[in-house]
Simulated scan of single mutants.
Amino acid sequence: MKALSIGSFDSFWKAALLTGGVAAWCLPAWNVIVNPYQIFKTEYSIGSRYTSSTTNERYLKVEYLLRDAKERSPDSAEAIVSTINRELSGERTVTKSPQRDAFIVGSSIMGLVDPELLNKRFPGRTFYNLAFLAAKPEEILATLKALKRKGVPIKTVVYGLEPIAFTDIKSYGPAYRLHPEAGGETKQRVIFDYLFASSLSEGLGRLINEARGMHSVRYAIDGNGRYFLDRYDQEIARDQAAFINKQFPVNAKPANAPPWIKSRFDDFEALVKWLDDEKVDARFYLNPLHPYVMKAYGEDRLEAFRTKIAELTRQKHISDCTHLLATDQHANQRFYDYKHFRDVESETVINCALSETNDFI
């Protein structure tokens, strides 16, 4: 009886250890194969690249720009091997596309802007859309510093601002983690954390979308950096009236916007100073707002925001595009939702942003 008890106890712990070991490796396997944050390589993962709604722009855009800068360096191993191979084969030197030296920054509102619109306005510059979902000034500064430190040229920056970024108190998960170079962590630590990140809901959402063949969003990380709201565009093309009724309920009453976060303005001031110290041609403007958002903040608070931004940027001219897309009864046709204007409005917005006459100072 005693021997049986010991044997049973021993078998129980062996089974428990085996079960625990399998369970411990289920999560890393899930994160690599389902890849909801798109951190891991495509050869190990399912589905289309950069089509997860939880794609980590902060990490992937910086990783792409750093890799591009490294490959362009004449001293890099990749460049040396490529030159040797061309010489041995007698091939001519291949002219690469211009290096990105100018950046669109800001929140997801800016993420929809096509960099080509800026390339036309700034001859000799090549823009990349470096905007992040829910980006804060502190994150933008840390990212630009990291890129500069690693040899990425930063000559021009266009930053569209809105009050939401200075009042948002929401906490964000792994999809919003900065690149190690910007966040001050080791790459090994970040990758390890992503292996064991809690991602059940994010992963299930990705699997469902892949099964349906439908993507709500698509990122051009390895291209110009912008993103596309494919599902919204498809719904608009199918039935614009139904889309508007779904996105903008009739007689929706806006709640009062939360108070200003003083530290955000301090971080923004630090960003402005760094850009000035680095001799970067920085352009700031105020993004268009939906009437619903303007009512939530109120004209007095919006005016205070304009004044504060003008004070911190110390620019002689800042374009105020706040009311640009809300001047008639068709405002709902010009926005995807209460925050994001449609990408077809981007050229109108950029024309306003870079106008020499549309100022409030």
Score class of each variant (00 low, 15 high):
residue 266 D to G: 13
residue 266 D to V: 10
residue 267 D to M: 06
residue 267 D to S: 15
residue 267 D to H: 12
residue 267 D to C: 03
residue 268 F to N: 01
residue 269 E to C: 08
residue 269 E to F: 10
residue 269 E to Y: 08
residue 270 A to W: 07
residue 270 A to C: 04
residue 270 A to H: 09
residue 271 L to N: 13
residue 271 L to R: 02
residue 272 V to T: 05
residue 272 V to M: 05
residue 273 K to E: 08
residue 273 K to Y: 15
residue 274 W to R: 00
residue 274 W to C: 00
residue 275 L to F: 00
residue 275 L to E: 07
residue 276 D to E: 09
residue 276 D to T: 13
residue 276 D to R: 14
residue 277 D to R: 15
residue 278 E to G: 03
residue 278 E to R: 07
residue 279 K to A: 07
residue 280 V to S: 03
residue 281 D to M: 05
residue 281 D to E: 15
residue 281 D to F: 07
residue 282 A to T: 06
residue 282 A to N: 06
residue 283 R to M: 14
residue 285 Y to V: 01
residue 285 Y to M: 02
residue 286 L to P: 07
residue 287 N to D: 12
residue 287 N to S: 14
residue 289 L to H: 02
residue 290 H to R: 15
residue 290 H to S: 09
residue 290 H to L: 04
residue 291 P to A: 08
residue 291 P to W: 09
residue 291 P to N: 06
residue 291 P to E: 02
residue 292 Y to S: 13
residue 292 Y to R: 10
residue 293 V to G: 09
residue 293 V to M: 12
residue 294 M to W: 02
residue 294 M to R: 12
residue 294 M to G: 14
residue 294 M to Y: 08
residue 295 K to N: 10
residue 295 K to M: 13
residue 296 A to M: 12
residue 296 A to S: 14
residue 296 A to C: 07
residue 296 A to D: 07
residue 297 Y to A: 04
residue 299 E to T: 11
residue 299 E to H: 04
residue 300 D to Q: 15
residue 302 L to G: 05
residue 303 E to K: 12
residue 303 E to F: 13
residue 305 F to M: 14
residue 305 F to K: 09
residue 307 T to R: 13
residue 308 K to F: 07
residue 311 E to P: 09
residue 312 L to T: 00
residue 312 L to M: 09
residue 313 T to P: 01
residue 313 T to S: 10
residue 314 R to Y: 06
residue 314 R to N: 12
residue 315 Q to N: 08
residue 315 Q to I: 07
residue 315 Q to T: 04
residue 315 Q to C: 11
residue 316 K to M: 10
residue 317 H to E: 00
residue 319 S to C: 13
residue 319 S to Y: 05
residue 320 D to N: 15
residue 320 D to G: 05
residue 321 C to F: 02
residue 321 C to W: 06
residue 321 C to L: 02
residue 321 C to N: 10
residue 322 T to R: 08
residue 322 T to M: 11
residue 323 H to T: 12
residue 324 L to C: 00
residue 324 L to S: 01
residue 325 L to E: 03
residue 326 A to L: 05
residue 326 A to R: 06
residue 327 T to M: 12
residue 327 T to R: 11
residue 328 D to A: 01
residue 328 D to Q: 00
residue 329 Q to L: 06
residue 329 Q to R: 07
residue 330 H to I: 04
residue 331 A to W: 00
residue 332 N to C: 02
residue 332 N to L: 02
residue 332 N to S: 10
residue 334 R to S: 02
residue 336 Y to G: 07
residue 337 D to H: 01
residue 337 D to R: 01
residue 339 K to Y: 15
residue 339 K to M: 15
residue 340 H to G: 00
residue 341 F to W: 06
residue 342 R to C: 07
residue 342 R to Q: 06
residue 344 V to G: 03
residue 344 V to D: 09
residue 348 T to H: 14
residue 348 T to Y: 08
residue 349 V to Y: 03
residue 350 I to P: 01
residue 351 N to W: 01
residue 351 N to Y: 01
